[in-house]
Lab assay of single mutants.
Amino acid sequence: NKFNKELQWATWEILNLPNLNEEQVKAFIDSLRDDPSQSANLLAEAKKLNDAQA
Score class of each variant (00 low, 15 high):
L20V: 02
E45P: 00
L43K: 03
F28H: 01
P36V: 04
W9V: 10
Q38L: 12
I29T: 06
L17W: 02
K26T: 07
K26M: 09
E6D: 13
D35G: 04
N41W: 11
Q53T: 06
Q53N: 06
L20G: 00
K47E: 03
D51H: 10
L7M: 09
W12Q: 15
D51K: 14
A40P: 07
N19H: 03
D30Y: 13
A54N: 10
E23L: 06
A44S: 12
F3P: 15
D51S: 14
L15I: 09
F28A: 03
N19P: 00
L15F: 06
E45K: 07
A46S: 02
A52E: 12
Q24K: 02
A10E: 02
E13D: 04
Q24G: 00
E23D: 13
A10L: 13
I29N: 02
F28V: 03
A44T: 12
E6A: 03
A27G: 12
A54H: 07
A52S: 10
Q8F: 07
K48N: 11
L32I: 09
N4K: 03
L49Y: 07
I14L: 13
L49V: 11
N19D: 04
N4Y: 09
L32R: 00
W9F: 14
S39R: 04
A52K: 15
L17A: 01
L7N: 04
R33E: 10
N21P: 03
Q53M: 13
T11E: 05
D30I: 09
Q24Y: 02
L15D: 04
Q24F: 02
L43S: 04
D51R: 08
K48D: 06
Q53A: 03
E22L: 10
L49R: 05
K2V: 15
L43R: 06
N50L: 01
N19I: 02
L17F: 07
S31F: 09
R33F: 15
N50K: 01
Q53F: 08
K48F: 14
V25D: 00
W12G: 12
K26N: 06
K2S: 15
Q38H: 11
N41Y: 14
F3N: 08
E13R: 01
S31L: 14
L17D: 00
L20P: 00
N21V: 08
W12N: 12
L43Y: 08
L42Q: 06
F3A: 04
E23K: 12
N41V: 13
A27Q: 05
L32V: 05
I14P: 01
E13W: 07
E22S: 14
E23R: 11
E22M: 11
L42S: 03
L17T: 01
Q24D: 04
F3Q: 04
Q38M: 08
Q8D: 05
K26H: 08
A10R: 02
D51G: 08
E22W: 15
L7D: 10
F28G: 00
F3D: 15
L7F: 10
L49E: 05
E22A: 13
A10W: 04
L17P: 00
Q38D: 13
K5W: 14
D34I: 12
L43D: 00
N1W: 00
P18T: 08
N1Q: 03
D35W: 05
L15E: 13
E6I: 06
A52R: 11
S39D: 02
K2I: 15
S39W: 15
L20E: 00
P36E: 04
S31G: 04
D35R: 08
N4A: 04
A10Y: 10
Q53R: 02
F28I: 05
N21D: 10
P18W: 06
I29L: 14
F3I: 10
A40I: 10
E6L: 07
N1T: 04
A44W: 10
W12I: 10
E23N: 12
N19S: 08
A54F: 08
S31D: 10
N21K: 14
A44L: 15
N21W: 08
L15S: 10
D51I: 05
A27F: 13
L49N: 03
F28D: 00
Q8H: 04
A10G: 03
N16D: 04
V25M: 07
D51F: 10
V25I: 08
A54D: 12
A46Y: 03
K48E: 15
N21F: 09
K48G: 07
E23V: 11
L20I: 05
L32E: 00
A10F: 15
I29E: 02
F3M: 02
T11F: 13
N4W: 15
N16E: 06
I29H: 03
V25K: 14
S31M: 14
N4G: 07
I29M: 06
W9K: 14
A52Y: 15
N1I: 06
A54I: 10
Q53D: 03
S39K: 09
S39Q: 08
A54W: 10
V25N: 02
I14E: 01
I14N: 01
K5N: 15
L17M: 07
E22V: 13
K5H: 11
P36D: 03
N19F: 12
D34L: 09
A10S: 05
N4D: 15
K2L: 15
N50A: 06
R33D: 05
R33L: 14
L7S: 05
L43A: 05
T11I: 12
I29G: 02
E13Q: 14
D30N: 15
L7Y: 09
T11Q: 02
W9M: 12
R33H: 15
L49H: 05
L7R: 02
Q8R: 07
K48R: 13
E45H: 08
A44K: 11
K26E: 06
K47N: 10
L32S: 01
I14R: 00
N41M: 08
L43T: 05
T11G: 03
L42A: 05
K26I: 13
N19Y: 14
A54T: 12
K5S: 13
N41L: 08
F28T: 01
D30P: 00
E23P: 08
A27H: 13
P36K: 02
S31P: 02
D35Q: 08
A40G: 07
L7Q: 10
R33W: 13
A40Y: 14
A27W: 14
W9A: 14
A40F: 07
S39Y: 15
N4M: 06
D34F: 14
E45L: 11
E13N: 06
L17Y: 05
I29F: 04
L15A: 10
P36I: 08
Q24E: 04
D51P: 01
S37A: 06
N41T: 12
S37N: 08
D30M: 12
D30G: 12
A46R: 00
K5V: 14
D35F: 05
Q53S: 08
K47H: 12
S37H: 07
N16V: 05
F3K: 02
E45D: 10
K48I: 13
P18E: 13
A54Y: 09
N21L: 09
E13Y: 12
E22Y: 09
N1G: 06
L32Y: 02
L49I: 09
L17E: 01
L15P: 02
L32D: 00
Q38K: 14
A52T: 11
L17S: 03
W9N: 09
W12S: 15
P36L: 09
I14F: 04
Q8L: 11
A54M: 12
N16G: 09
A54Q: 14
L20T: 00
W12D: 15
L20F: 01
Q24L: 03
L32G: 01
E23T: 14
K48M: 09
N19R: 03
A46E: 00
